[in-house]
């Protein structure tokens, strides 16, 4: 495995970085380019930018802010938000994004995954999964960017992870919704189950609140990367300290 990745996630709304608790009550936390630069300087290995309202509003993310980010940073970044056609994905990649993450549109029309993988390669196609625990299992939710639009898909998370990777998704960002923003740790058992189901890298998401949570995501759950927002935006955890700590735990980190 390459060095495990520390991935700040920046939720974007109207070209600004925002953050909510369990996908609600968004507050403005900063300018998109300033945030990108700050995390790059601190040693983030990758960034993810989600236009959180695009999908629910039936539009694709704006390549204009993708270009603004691409111009200033020299680390990889993925973008997400309402990409539902090949041409919309091409616009993101041509604007300088390294990967396009798709979520609700892939649930609407799973063949989209194959179309993107065929033209751009699996390494450009990330599957975002919003997984919700209920009735002793984990289920995929759709349109989570807006509380009113959020709906159940009736798909089991593990089935969807398997199907999507067979169709050509090259990475899975597994967001465990009950953990989002609450800082009690990643859902390790569920993340481990997805890691064992999919042959592609899995990024743990939802719940990071302490240094140990990142160690657990890598050591116990086997995640390739750990994504977090609140702890980085609110400066509760500094990335250099986090990497130092994980290094002392014997986890390979890029320095």
């Amino acid at each position: 495995m390459p060095a495990r990745r520390i991935i700040p996630c920046l939720d974007v709304k109207d070209g600004r970085v925002v953050k909510g608790i369990q996908f609600r009550n968004h507050r403005d936390v900063g300018d998109i380019v300033e945030s990108a630069m700050r995390y790059r300087e601190e040693g983030a290995d990758e960034l993810v930018f989600y236009d959180i309202s695009a999908s629910a509003e039936g539009r694709s993310l704006d390549p204009e802010w993708v270009r603004r980010i691409a111009r200033v940073i020299d680390i990889p970044f993925a973008v997400a938000g309402g990409v539902r056609t090949r041409d919309q994905a091409a616009a993101c990649l041509d604007s300088g994004a390294d990967k396009v993450s798709i979520n609700s549109p892939a649930l609407e029309r799973p063949a989209l995954i194959e179309e993107l993988a065929r033209d751009f390669g699996s390494q450009c196609v990330v599957l975002g999964v919003d997984s919700f625990e209920a009735d002793g299992d984990y289920w995929v939710k759709q349109y989570t960017g807006s509380p009113d639009a959020t709906r159940d898909t009736g798909r089991r998370t593990l089935d969807w992870a398997k199907e999507a990777t067979e169709r050509g998704a090259g990475e899975i960002v597994l967001n465990c919704m009950r953990r989002d923003g609450v800082r009690t740790g990643y859902d390790l058992a569920h993340t481990r189950a997805v890691v064992e189901t999919a042959s592609v890298p899995v990024i743990a998401s939802g719940g990071a609140g302490a240094l140990e949570h990142f160690r657990d995501a890598f050591v116990d759950a086997g995640a390739s990367g750990a994504l977090a927002a609140t702890v980085f935006h609110d400066r509760l955890i500094a990335i250099p300290d986090l990497k130092e700590y994980l290094g002392t735990c014997g986890i390979e980190m890029r320095r």
Binding site: P2, E46, Q123
Partner: peptide
């Protein structure tokens, strides 16, 4: 997992390419 995605360290055999052994660079393939 495949794709090989992320930062891996290098063994470098040629000092004319600007890279040094131990450098981390980003792969996605």
């Amino acid at each position: 997992p495949v794709p090989h995605m992320g930062w891996s360290s290098l063994q470098v055999r040629d000092d004319r390419i600007g890279l040094r052994t131990g450098d981390y660079v980003y792969f996605a393939h």
